[in-house]
Design a binder for these strands. Structure first.
Length: 270
DNA sequence: CTCTTAACCTGGACGC
DNA sequence: TGCGTCCAGGTTAAGA
């Protein structure tokens, strides 16, 4: 469930406890997540020092000199740093034990997440086709406008396409489109350059603000220290179908777009 | 290419 | 209390 802000919140919480630590052991309790966990996680990771914890799109990378452990939280995954003796709970699939005596524990009820290995100097195939980071300078209105020409899919689906821009999921796509005043149903190829400037700026604003708040906690998400995120208190449209628009009072419309629940204000968003 | 659809898996909420 | 149904923050694979 985590979108970019939740993954970034996880990264920031993890980093101080994980960076510089040597991996003492890896315990796999459930070797089949979305994909089987490759042998390298058991053979290459133990004994290596974790140089840094980085993020690309919604993936987290534990970087070592030999390569990187590549983690995705899927819809329901969570990473926590815990004392080594912490009792195992349901869906605690992987432990990465650290020299500090603590353990990095991966819990994922739905098992849509993954734990893969990226050899040093290589780019994992899953990372190869990703679009730019939304908070980078490479992502702006001109980029969105150019890429969207000729596209007939709804702009909301375009915005959630990780090949177009990474990190924007169902919550923040809805919020950014509201902030930009653009209907999620509008064809991506029919949005003007001016409105794409507004959309790019809205995406950056919404994501940066959500990161400041520690992400959005709806059901599953908890930060690495066990605390919830506080951004849900500021959601304008997501999850508010049938309720009044906070800007104009009009009843918010709800309708699936691309098989994802979508909410928007028919007056504020055109 | 672009776009749509089904599928992966589990738990919680809701209606009867 | 129990059971069936629907829904959920993501992503890929397959097909049109």
């Amino acid at each position: 469930m985590p979108e970019l802000p939740e993954v970034e919140t996880t990264r920031r919480g993890l980093a101080p406890h994980v960076e510089g630590q040597r991996v003492a052991a890896v315990i796999l309790r459930r070797p089949d997540l979305r994909w089987p966990i490759p042998a390298e996680i058991s053979t290459r990771l133990p004994g290596r020092r974790i140089r840094s914890v980085t993020r690309r799109a919604k993936y987290l990378l534990l970087d070592t000199d030999e390569g990187a452990a590549l983690l995705h939280l899927g819809m329901s995954g969570a990473l926590r740093v815990l004392p080594a003796a912490t009792p195992i709970r349901a869906h605690d699939h992987v432990d990465i034990e650290l020299d500090s005596g603590r353990v990095l524990r991966f819990n994922d009820p739905r098992r849509f997440g993954c734990l893969l290995w990226q050899p040093a100097g290589e780019t994992h195939p899953l990372l190869a086709g990703l679009g730019p980071e939304p908070l980078s300078d490479a992502f702006d209105g001109a980029y969105l406008f150019r890429l969207s020409r000729g596209r007939r899919a709804p702009v909301k689906a375009f915005l959630m396409d990780q090949a177009a821009v990474v990190g924007v999921g169902n919550i923040y796509a809805a919020e950014a489109l509201f902030l930009a005043g653009i209907s999620p149903l509008r064809a991506a190829g029919k949005v003007s350059p001016e409105r794409y400037e507004r959309l790019a700026a809205s995406v950056k604003t919404v994501l940066a603000h959500a990161i400041e708040r520690g992400g959005t906690t709806l059901r599953d998400f908890i930060g690495p220290d066990g605390s919830p995120g506080y951004f849900e208190q500021e959601l304008s449209v997501y999850g508010r179908g049938g309720e009044p628009c906070k800007a104009c009072g009009r009843v918010l419309r709800e309708q699936p777009i691309g098989q994802r629940a979508s909410v928007w204000c028919p007056r504020c968003q055109r």
